[in-house]
């Protein structure tokens, strides 16, 4: 019963000081990077690399690549933007 009088060992003051600050990259910068990547991928000369005489499962590579790159960008933006407010 004596223990009641002894104050519990002071808990590390986590709530007040916040979690130890891990260096977080602002999401804005990541989104700008995705934007830059998109501009590069969807323009000359990178886009011209896909213009070849070949088909994948009967579909020509060029339109396939356009839709594929497009889907990739959508996925990246979704992955980076659509998360809960930290």
């Amino acid at each position: 019963m004596q223990n009641q009088d002894i104050p519990a060992p002071a808990a590390p003051n986590e709530s007040a000081a916040g979690r130890p600050a891990s260096p977080r990259i602002p999401e804005g910068q990541r989104l700008v990077a995705v934007f830059a990547l998109g501009v590069l991928l969807l323009n000359f000369p990178l886009l011209a690399l896909w213009d070849v005489q070949a088909t994948v499962m009967g579909i020509p590579v060029f339109p396939l690549a356009l839709f594929g790159l497009w889907a990739l960008l959508i996925g990246l933006v979704g992955w980076m933007a659509d998360r809960k407010e930290p």
Partner: peptide
């Protein structure tokens, strides 16, 4: 041909910057 596409690719790029 694929010339109908850039009109929709542009918005995709713009939306990457929507949050900003």
């Amino acid at each position: 041909g694929v010339w109908f596409l850039p009109i929709y690719l542009g918005p995709t790029l713009a939306m990457a910057l929507a949050w900003l």
